[in-house]
């Protein structure tokens, strides 16, 4: 075939666009690699067994570890999950399975989308007003509440999308056998979507692991290993914030180590999400 000027033009354009896409992808991955590399180079030197096993010493030259903050974050995320996952999944089920309520569904879906976009500092203030003020002090419940509040819209919308992927033929088969709607949902639809639901839940958990702003006004943070949710509650992110903004170089070093641990935690969680997602049933049937 004869190559005209136009032909050359369109082939060059195609190659250019492809190169642009590859360039952008490399840039993104490169930035992530740079961040992790930079973190590792600074944080790793401050990382020791003591970081995981020791509590803050009170001595600014030798500040101890972040055991309290790691456990605090895990406890906060767990509490938030216990509150947020059932609420979020239930909302997702409602959005996906009760299509006849179309005049209620649209506002619920809109609200969930707006909530998912609300800056987390706003949710922190909400937690302050709704939990901290009535209870009279900063406390772990307020932190868990704020984190759960961030989770619910994310879990609700991802659950809805995942449940929509379950073919209607399953629902029809179940109903045609005389199952109630609740039986159809609990025995057929949810099991078929379990893997993808877990993916959505873990995405939301990963998101709240790294939240700092909503905890500042609610759990406040603590330098003690007081895992009593009625008292100010330690967390990794707030502890990093406190050390990083403080004046002491040893504490700053500890903050770098904390960031490294947090990023490692998120990377591990995301890898786990990918693994679960690749094995989920919804993916194989959709």
């Amino acid at each position: 075939m004869r190559r005209t000027a136009y032909d050359l033009y369109r082939r060059s354009l195609s190659a250019l666009i492809f190169a642009g896409c590859v360039g952008c992808a490399v840039l993104i991955v490169g930035v992530l690699g740079w961040v992790i590399g930079y973190l590792s180079s600074i944080g790793a030197s401050s990382l020791s067994i003591g970081f995981f096993t020791e509590l803050p010493s009170g001595d600014v030259a030798n500040p101890g570890g972040m055991k309290h903050a790691i456990l605090g974050t895990l406890a906060l995320v767990a509490m938030a999950g216990v509150i947020g996952v059932p609420l979020g999944v239930a909302t997702g089920i409602y959005l996906a399975e009760f299509k006849q309520d179309r005049y209620i569904l649209a506002p619920v879906r809109f609200t969930a989308d707006v909530l998912a976009g609300v800056p987390s500092i706003v949710i922190g203030i909400l937690g302050y007003e709704l939990v901290v003020v009535p209870m009279g002090s900063y406390n772990g419940w307020a932190g868990a509440f704020a984190l759960a509040f961030i989770m619910v819209p994310i879990v609700a919308r991802t659950s809805e999308e995942m449940l929509r992927l379950v073919p209607d033929s399953y629902r029809a088969a179940s109903l045609a056998l005389g199952a109630t709607k609740a039986q159809t949902i609990t025995r057929v639809v949810l099991p078929a979507a379990t893997g993808s639901l877990i993916t959505g839940i873990m995405l939301a958990l990963a998101r709240i692991c790294g939240e700092t702003a909503p905890l500042l006004f609610t759990a406040l943070g603590s330098r003690l290993l007081t895992l009593d949710p009625n008292k100010p509650f330690p967390s990794l992110t707030v502890q990093i914030y406190t050390y990083a903004t403080g004046p002491y170089p040893e504490q700053k070093r500890l903050a770098w180590a904390g960031i490294l641990v947090l990023v490692a935690l998120l990377l591990a969680l995301n890898a786990l999400i990918r693994y679960v997602a690749s094995r989920s049933i919804t993916r194989s049937i959709a």
Binding site: S169, Y170, A176, L177
Partner: peptide
Amino acid sequence: RRRVGMVFQKSNPFP
């Protein structure tokens, strides 16, 4: 629906 069974166009066993 318990008294009236149904077989669909496309087979739809549960997973």
